[in-house]
Design a protein around this nucleic acid. Sequence first.
DNA 1: TACCAACCTATTGACATAGTAGGTTGTTGG
DNA 2: CCAACAACCTACTATGTCAATAGGTTGGTA
Lengths: 142, 142
Amino acid sequence: MGVIQLNGVMNMISTKGRYALRVMIDLAQNDHGGYIPLKDIAEHQEISKKYLEIIVKKMVEGGLIEGSSGKGGGYKLLRKPNRYTVGEILTLMEGTISSVACLADKKYDCPRRKKCETLPMWKEFDSIVHNYLYGKKLSDLI
Amino acid sequence: MGVIQLNGVMNMISTKGRYALRVMIDLAQNDHGGYIPLKDIAEHQEISKKYLEIIVKKMVEGGLIEGSSGKGGGYKLLRKPNRYTVGEILTLMEGTISSVACLADKKYDCPRRKKCETLPMWKEFDSIVHNYLYGKKLSDLI
DNA sequence: TACCAACCTATTGACATAGTAGGTTGTTGG
DNA sequence: CCAACAACCTACTATGTCAATAGGTTGGTA
């Protein structure tokens, strides 16, 4: 699979987050009560199975899905699609979604915080992004 | 200056964009008709002058500001603060601001475009981000 | 017990980020 | 007119992330 180069293009969401979302949609669409093997998802979605392994591992650890080994094994959702938000899926894969470092984590709190003219804007922006992503449910994408 | 590490934290806007915005604000606030040397801006903003050189160079090339060498030289705005949008400043520094690669540039157009369940969401999301950033003016930050 | 699928460790090339370093050109106040 | 000043220019670097690839191990079931 060719490597995508992004010359001077700023991307907010990496393949990890986007692929995770597509795995979730696939699991929701093909839900039959049992487990769906990763091999099938990789084929549907045209994504390398090996790469997806890394992604679904995180998704299992994060409590989004459940895995089962052996014949008849695979992955399945743990909740109904309307019980997942896009925001929680992306946050699990990407880390805290924040426009700027000082808002992402207290440890990056900068000494200029009180006099920073841009901080209110970043806060407002983050709030808009947050509201959109956490307002969108997995069920909205199927 | 210490290097900021962002373990598992997703940041949309890099220092280039954020610093550029702060330079613009500084130039607007200290505007007296003449040029303001980078040394002064670096001191006000507590950012390495050497690093700012890289940033202001792009800002000059991009037509945001004007530079003048020699004694009494420095940088100044080319327009009034209400004639700059935050979006255009960030786009110049960060490249096209887009949530996902396939929306950033036609050359990343993927074969799954027509059946992609997530694309409409990314389009809507990008539109919200775009509207916010291009609706915000430099004059709103002073 | 053979097969299948998840699970685990590690390595890799390419690129971006966030700077640092030092030199050259151009302008102007004294 | 020249010294001081400031922009401008080229090059380099450490660190980290992204997007995978590779191969082996554990565990469940038909």
